[in-house]
Simulated scan of single mutants.
Amino acid sequence: MPRGHLEHINITVSDIERSAALLEQLCGWRIRWRGPSMLGGETIHVGDETDYIAVYTKGAALPGRHAKGLPLNHVGLVVDDLDAAEAVVKAAGLEPFNHADYEPGRRFYFFDWDGIEFEMVSYA
């Protein structure tokens, strides 16, 4: 049976610089690649050696926030220091919500500027 792992997630955002900077600060990631998209616009790959999030923009204004679940429910990211991650989210002017502590870890959620929901979780 084949085995796999998640290599990347590609999300459309209104400001790739802002979104890439948030991901770098939240997870200690770096910009792996940046360039034009095959569909037009620009993409930045933010991650580590094994996986990343591709933040993409068409270069034109987006119509606004999507409803939850359209286009996705949330992106889950594991961090080693949940309190530090929450401080980054707050410093970016975003609002953490739905804090929970249950097996297998502590977590909170937040929406970014484009209405994409992130779940931050720590198993430490």
Rank of each mutant, 00 (worst) to 15 (best):
S37I: 02
D114A: 00
E17I: 13
G28L: 08
R34G: 09
W29Y: 15
N98W: 11
E86A: 13
I11K: 01
N73C: 10
D114S: 00
E103S: 10
R107E: 14
A91W: 05
N98G: 13
H8Y: 12
K90V: 15
A20H: 03
G28W: 09
L6Q: 09
V79W: 02
E86Q: 14
K68F: 14
G28Y: 05
P104E: 03
E103V: 12
L6K: 07
H74F: 01
R30D: 13
E86G: 07
P71W: 06
V55I: 00
V89H: 04
E95H: 13
H8M: 04
S19Q: 06
G41C: 05
V88S: 01
K58M: 11
A60I: 09
H45A: 12
L82I: 15
A91G: 06
P36R: 14
A85M: 05
G59C: 02
D81C: 03
G105Y: 02
P96E: 07
D112M: 06
H74I: 02
G76E: 08
S122K: 07
K58P: 11
N73L: 14
E103Y: 15
R34E: 15
I11M: 14
A67I: 14
I44M: 06
D81I: 10
N98R: 13
H5Q: 00
P96W: 11
L22V: 12
I31R: 13
R3H: 14
M1Y: 12
A21F: 03
P104A: 08
Y102N: 09
A54L: 01
Y123L: 10
N10P: 03
E42M: 08
A54N: 03
E42V: 12
F111S: 00
D15T: 05
H8F: 09
F97W: 14
G93P: 02
E117R: 09
D112R: 04
F108T: 08
D80G: 11
H66Q: 11
A91K: 07
L23M: 06
H74M: 01
G105F: 05
L82F: 09
R32V: 15
P2T: 07
V13E: 04
G105C: 02
P63R: 09
V75S: 03
E86K: 13
L6E: 08
N10E: 15
L23G: 02
L77W: 03
H5D: 00
D48P: 01
E86F: 05
M1P: 06
A61T: 12
C27M: 13
P2A: 10
S19D: 05
A20G: 13
V46A: 01
D80L: 06
Y123G: 00
R106W: 01
L23I: 11
R3W: 15
T12C: 14
D15H: 07
P2S: 08
H99W: 14
L70M: 10
E42K: 06
T43M: 13
S14D: 07
G47I: 01
E17H: 12
C27A: 13
D112Y: 02
N10H: 15
L77I: 15
A54C: 05
T57F: 04
F111T: 00
K90H: 06
G28S: 07
E119A: 10
Q25G: 08
I16E: 01
N10A: 15
M1K: 10
S37W: 00
